[in-house]
Design a protein around this nucleic acid. Structure first.
Lengths: 169, 169
DNA sequence: ACGAGATTGAGATGCAATATCATTCAGGGG
DNA sequence: CCCCTGAATGATATTGCATCTCAATCTCGT
């Protein structure tokens, strides 16, 4: 649950690549660093953009490939909002059991943990003939701040939706 | 919770369109019929395909527009698996509170209801400063049938994923 | 230095979804 | 009965994201 240092994260990544007989090139290191330097969820295209602005560089293809490798290593996970958006979450290293609560209007995401919910999730999963996985559960709601301001509906049809960032709790 | 007849569903759709000053054209009726004739989740492109094979017809643009209208009416809802897939679920008319359990390997979806889970979901939502919505919750798991056969991993990287259909429980 | 295999990146391609816009349609007023 | 206006349609172009392809480059062990 502690905040692993970036150096530790890079070491873990390097170890994973090595275990697969793959190299930890400077491009892969740059991508990995960019992902784990913050705790923000991100879209692959956002990552490309951010990398272009930085001093390092890697092609789109390399970025996508690196993301896939990191997902396979378990250090990174794909999460999904609605709307066909594909997001990646680098926070499972610190809190392996967290879930996501998403505002249906502004798409803000907050992360939370709840042991009771985990238990219930496992029960339901088994009851339905499935095996529980380490994978997260997702809840939708409406964030009060925006609802009270009366701006949610406007945001939805008007300006392009902007994610406000991921709070940790 | 009862199975509403197709005729009733079409009536409801027609009423919605009328209330918005819109017409219930034969294209819109064909799309609506196709959606609510079965209880299958569907991708918009699948729907285009199915419609092309039927005797009626509507352009892709009309299909997408009609889907949006039906979502706005509340008769249809978007649900999301992982992988950026966008699915629509016509079953909320019969069971307004159902949730989805999704196999992370083969993407099979089963629907379930659980009042206790609803309560807990509401508690968590409020605790995090959100308002509960009518929107569904999603759980991921691994369906035992395929896991036991040891074919899950294969399906993931090999053949294109195929949804097996939505069971109702 | 050499060679096998991994890696990269530019561009092509695929695919879903949306936008554009000329044409068609429906129905109310004259 | 015709005209007019706004709604509706559909062919097409465009966008956005993701993946594929393949020649060139790089690494590392020998």
């Amino acid at each position: 649950m502690d905040q692993p240092s970036l150096k530790a994260v890079l070491g873990q990544a390097q170890a994973f690549f090595a275990s697969k007989g793959l190299r930890f090139t400077k491009q892969r290191e740059a991508v990995t660093t960019l992902i784990f330097r913050t705790h923000e969820h991100f879209r692959p295209e956002e990552l490309c953009e951010r990398l272009r602005k930085s001093d390092s560089s890697a092609s789109r293809a390399t970025i996508y490939r690196t993301i896939l490798h990191l997902v396979e290593s378990g250090m990174l996970r794909e999460i999904s909002l609605g709307g066909g958006e594909r997001l990646y979450d680098p926070n499972f290293l610190q809190s392996p059991h967290h879930n996501h609560l998403i505002c249906v209007d502004c798409r803000e995401i907050v992360e939370f943990e709840d042991p009771n919910l985990d238990i219930m999730q496992n029960c339901i999963t088994r009851r339905m003939g499935f095996s529980p996985t380490e994978k997260a559960l997702r809840i939708e709601g409406r964030c009060d701040r925006l609802r009270l301001l009366g701006t949610c509906k406007n945001m939805k049809s008007g300006k392009p939706k902007k994610r406000i960032g991921s709070k940790r709790v």
